[in-house]
Every structure is written in C-alpha cells, then in structure tokens.
C-alpha cells in the first residue's frame, strides 16, 4: 500500500453522505421506569469522514447507531442524511453488526445478494454481488453456507453484504468485537482500505481505543449513560497507521484519561 501524505488523507471522495445529528435524546421504558440513554447529542459528520464512537460499555453508543440506521426514532432531536431527515431504514445507510447475523439458510452469495433482492434490483445487478464477494476475498466460498465459515470469514460476508448496496454511510457496530486479535488486525486494515477506495462516510462504534485510533480520523468520546459528547478528537495521521506511533500513544493516554482509566496507563 502506498503511504499517503497527511493532506491526502483528509480530503475525501464525494461518495459519502453528510450526517447531521442535532440535539438527539433517547430513552427506553423498562418495567415502567424511563431509562435515558442519549442526552442532547449533537454531531456533524462531513461526507467521507471516518468517525469512531468510544464510550464505556452500555453508554448508548449502539442506540445512537440504531437511530442513524433508522431502526428506531429518537425521542427528541433530528438526524439528517444529506439534509434529508432520517425517518426509517434505507439501504444508503447500512449497518454491520457485532454478530455477522448471516441468514443460515442462504449461501454466501445469497446472503450478499440480500440487499439487492430486497430492493428488487437483483436481476439486473447480479455482477455487483460477485464484485462485493471478490472485494472481501471470498470468491471461492460463494456457495458455502454460513455454518461452514469461520468467524472472520462470516464477518467479511457481512461486510460484503453491506458494501454491495454502495452505501453512503457505513455503520459499524463493533464489527470486530468477537474476532480473535490476529483476524482483527487484518480486518482493520481491510476496512481502512475499503473506506479509502469507496469513500463512504463511516461511523464505527467500538470500545477498543487503539482500534478507534488506527481506523478513524475523528474520535468521539461519550460519557456514561445517558451519553453526552465528552470530547471530539481529530486524529491527524496518514494511513496506514502504526500502532506504535507516539502521536497515537499520546492520544490513547488522553482518551483513557477521559474514560476514567488513566491509572491503567
């Protein structure tokens, strides 16, 4: 991979959409009690940006992603994709979940074809499915069933299933959380490569500080539940990034401090 200059790394191709989160609050009703999860979160994400959401476990990161995906409506506030209000799910905003959630009754090819099939355009667009499978390097597994795949392969299929729709915003909900550390490192660079190639806006939820710093060019640190934005940190480093980079190490220390874990440093 060619090392890009810092200037190149922050200019984005125009494929990605702008995402605008404005004064969003959300809560759940559990056993009659109201549990606030998001408290007046505002965030403007430029087209093609790679934003990581970091926060303590259970702080509402995933809820924010569900709102972005349109799977739920916020109790207050507005979310907009390219000036259009988000009112429901749309294939331009695809989510990759922590579990690959492949459909076990469908082969790899049929799983990847899911989005095009659901939108009724599969018949004319079959080549896109093949392309997406090639993109994640699983061409020889297109007829395999999910139970025949390893965890990393399954997550690659999930990634292909998302990318086949040419999303403007790719929403990643701890997609590498359950993978072993080697597969994880390999897939981190794959995700960066795909993002650089395709130029979609990326929103990544993770609780791995290092992962956030290696992947994103902006890290949002959230507070405990109900989540508020605690810090908005720009990571001005070209890709591919090195885990041992002292600049990243310094940021990591700072972020762990924000999360109340400075003692572990």
């Amino acid at each position: 991979m060619v090392v890009q200059s810092a200037a190149e790394a922050i200019t984005y191709p125009a494929v990605g959409a702008e995402l605008d989160i404005e004064g969003v609050s959300h809560a759940f009703d559990i056993d009659g009690a109201t549990l606030p999860v998001l408290d007046n979160v505002s965030l403007a994400i430029a087209p093609g940006e790679f934003v990581a959401l970091l926060g303590p476990s259970g702080c509402g990161k995933s809820t924010l992603l569900r709102l972005v995906a349109g799977l739920e409506r916020p109790r207050a506030g507005v979310l907009r994709e390219d000036e259009t209000r988000i009112t429901g799910p749309h294939p331009s905003r695809v989510v990759v979940f922590q579990d690959p959630t492949l459909f076990p009754w469908r082969s790899v090819w049929d799983n990847v074809a899911l989005g095009l099939e659901a939108q009724g355009i599969l018949k004319t667009q079959r080549h896109r499915v093949d392309d997406a499978i090639d993109l994640v390097g699983l061409s020889s597994f297109r007829n395999a069933y999910p139970h025949q795949l390893s965890g990393g392969m399954a997550q690659r299929v999930a990634l292909a299933r998302a990318l086949v729709n040419d999303p403007k915003i790719l929403v990643l909900d701890e997609p590498l959380g359950k993978l072993d550390s080697l597969t994880r490192i390999a897939m981190q660079s794959e995700i960066v490569a795909l993002w650089q190639r395709k130029g979609f806006t990326t929103l990544l939820v993770t609780h791995d500080v290092e992962e956030a710093l290696v992947l994103a060019n902006r890290v949002i640190v959230l507070s405990d539940r109900p989540a508020r934005i605690k810090a908005d940190i720009a990571v001005q480093r070209p890709y591919p990034r090195h885990r041992g980079d002292p600049y990243l190490a310094e940021l990591r220390k700072q972020i762990l401090g924000l999360l109340g874990l400075e003692a572990t440093w």
């Binding site: 294939p91 979940f97 959630t101 459909f103 659901a118 729709n165």
Partner: peptide
C-alpha cells in the same frame, strides 16, 4: 431473532420480504 429483521430492514426490505 429480531437481528435478522434489523439486517433485512437496513438493507431495504419491505414487510412482505
């Protein structure tokens, strides 16, 4: 599992699908 429905919905599935 509701996760299957979530996946299908984000990919643009209608109720009949």
């Amino acid at each position: 599992s509701s996760a299957y429905y979530d996946v299908a919905r984000t990919l643009g599935a209608k109720p009949s699908f």
